[in-house]
């Protein structure tokens, strides 16, 4: 959250578009982390996430003057750009995968047809593994990657980035009710994916050591 003494996003974006380098740096430092983590959860690959941050801010540099203050906050504009790049990346990568692995609920592996486990192994990025603290986190990360795109977005923003429903709704440019329903559905899908095949809810809680 920006400090009250710091310039507002709108002001920074206005100066950025006018060619103010310090405004660009301030805006970048304020938002790059959120965009990076969003992209990381959406793709599962740090390299892809870094590339997406670069593409997102590059688009902002070139198209920043298209921002319309009446249509939302600059952060929503920025996340809109990032979401478009994520979607394009997933579509681009899906062209090179001949056989999509279907999951139990009929959805393709992670929206691009590839199993996340194989994708992560193929990326050879040790940094990603470093991030995993335990088996539950790793399994959850893979399960999130197997969620359909629109559910993955709300799970990422609300459950992994700690955004409120209203904030997520603003960033995703949809009603709060839609965020709620997608969250409920997404969490249920996560539980389905994490539960061992043919097992009940008790299995997952026992495996991970649920508190209740």
């Amino acid at each position: 959250m920006a400090d009250a003494a710091e310039p507002r996003d709108v002001e920074l974006l206005r100066r950025l578009v006018a060619g103010d380098e310090s405004a660009f740096l301030s805006f970048y430092k304020r938002h790059q982390g959120g965009i990076y983590r969003f992209a990381l959860h959406m793709t599962g690959r740090p390299e892809a996430a870094a590339d997406l941050v670069q593409e997102t801010f590059m688009t902002l540099i070139l198209e920043g003057r298209r921002y319309d203050e009446g249509r939302g906050a600059p952060a929503a504009f920025l996340y809109g750009i990032a979401r478009n790049h994520v979607r394009r990346l997933i579509e681009r990568e899906s062209r090179f995968v001949p056989f999509a692995e279907e999951t139990r609920d009929g959805n393709s592996a992670n929206g691009n047809g590839r199993a996340p486990e194989a994708e992560i192994r193929a990326s050879h990025e040790p940094a990603f593994d470093v991030l995993a603290r335990d088996e539950a986190v790793k399994e959850l990360r893979l399960a999130v990657l197997r969620l359909p795109h629109r559910y993955r977005e709300v799970i990422t923003l609300c459950d992994l980035e700690g955004r409120s429903y209203a904030e997520a709704a603003a960033l995703l440019e949809c009603p709060v009710g839609t965020v709620r329903s997608r969250l409920n559905r997404g969490r249920d899908m996560l539980a389905d994916k994490l539960r061992p095949a043919g097992k009940t809810s008790r299995s997952l809680a026992g495996k991970w050591g649920g508190r209740t």
Partner: peptide, 27 residues
């Protein structure tokens, strides 16, 4: 208990990338 486990894992996953950002080369 299942949802509690997922909730705990989500918090752990969020904490595992807390403060992460794009590498310096991007800036």
């Amino acid at each position: 208990a299942e949802l509690q486990a997922i909730f705990d894992a989500s918090e752990a996953l969020a904490a595992s990338v807390q403060g992460e950002g794009a590498p310096e080369r991007v800036e």
